[in-house]
Amino acid sequence: MENQTNDEEQINMHEEMRRAFSLLSGKWKLEIMWLLNQRIYRFGELRKAINGVTQHMLTAQLRELENDGLISRTVFAEVPPRVEYEMTAKARALGPTMEALAKWWSEYGKSVPVKPASRGRKVKKT
């Protein structure tokens, strides 16, 4: 891909797309965003919904998403404390992109080889 620039604004689209991709890069960020696109989640619910993620990694990924302004974290003054995560309006604007990915997957997903899970915590099957 060539570095595309707009002469008027001198914007290097390659660098801008690299910045955009970095917001969602990380093993769990897209899955977190997909879930939060559906509804508000508590930390424990996210951890249970994402097979293989560790508490440490989930915390780190949530902090990065929050720092980038893609999710918001609400702490309720209760005992025990309750924390909820939801997408911001900025992140909700990614909705059409997520829908396009879901459409692409439903058309081509069966042709993608299944990779064995090799990282993260092992989920006990009972």
Rank of each mutant, 00 (worst) to 15 (best):
Met1Trp: 04
Asn3Ala: 14
Asn3Glu: 15
Asn3Cys: 11
Gln4Gly: 06
Gln4Arg: 14
Asp7Asn: 05
Glu8Gln: 13
Gln10Cys: 12
Ile11Gln: 06
Glu15Met: 10
Glu16Ile: 07
Met17Tyr: 11
Phe21Thr: 09
Phe21Arg: 14
Leu23Cys: 07
Leu24Asp: 00
Lys27Cys: 07
Leu30His: 04
Ile32Met: 11
Met33Phe: 06
Met33Thr: 03
Met33Pro: 00
Leu36Arg: 00
Gln38Asp: 08
Arg39Gln: 08
Arg39Glu: 06
Ile40Cys: 03
Tyr41Gly: 01
Arg42Ile: 11
Gly44Gln: 03
Gly44Tyr: 05
Gly44Val: 02
Glu45Gly: 07
Lys48Glu: 14
Ala49His: 02
Ile50Gly: 01
Asn51Met: 12
Gly52Tyr: 01
Val53Ser: 06
Val53His: 02
Val53Phe: 05
His56Glu: 14
Met57Tyr: 03
Met57Asp: 12
Leu58Glu: 08
Leu58Val: 08
Ala60Asn: 07
Ala60Tyr: 03
Ala60Ser: 11
Arg63Val: 12
Leu65Lys: 08
Glu66Met: 09
Asp68Leu: 07
Asp68Gln: 13
Gly69Phe: 01
Ser72Gln: 10
Thr74Gln: 09
Val75Thr: 09
Phe76Ser: 11
Ala77Glu: 09
Glu78Gly: 05
Glu78Lys: 15
Pro81Ala: 02
Pro81Lys: 12
Val83Trp: 02
Val83Asp: 02
Tyr85Pro: 01
Tyr85Asp: 01
Glu86Cys: 03
Glu86Thr: 07
Met87Cys: 07
Met87Lys: 04
Thr88Met: 01
Ala89Trp: 00
Lys90Val: 13
Ala91Thr: 01
Arg92Cys: 06
Arg92Met: 02
Ala93Thr: 04
Gly95Tyr: 06
Pro96Gln: 07
Thr97His: 05
Thr97Glu: 01
Met98Gln: 05
Met98Leu: 15
Glu99Tyr: 04
Glu99Phe: 04
Glu99Pro: 03
Glu99Ala: 15
Leu101Thr: 11
Ala102Cys: 11
Ala102Val: 14
Ser106Ile: 13
Ser106Cys: 11
Glu107Leu: 13
Tyr108Asp: 06
Tyr108Pro: 01
Ser111Asp: 12
Val112Thr: 08
Pro113Met: 08
Val114Lys: 15
Pro116Leu: 07
Ser118Leu: 14
Gly120Tyr: 01
Lys122Asp: 05
Val123Trp: 00
Lys124Ala: 02
Lys124Tyr: 00
Lys124Trp: 00
Lys125Ile: 03
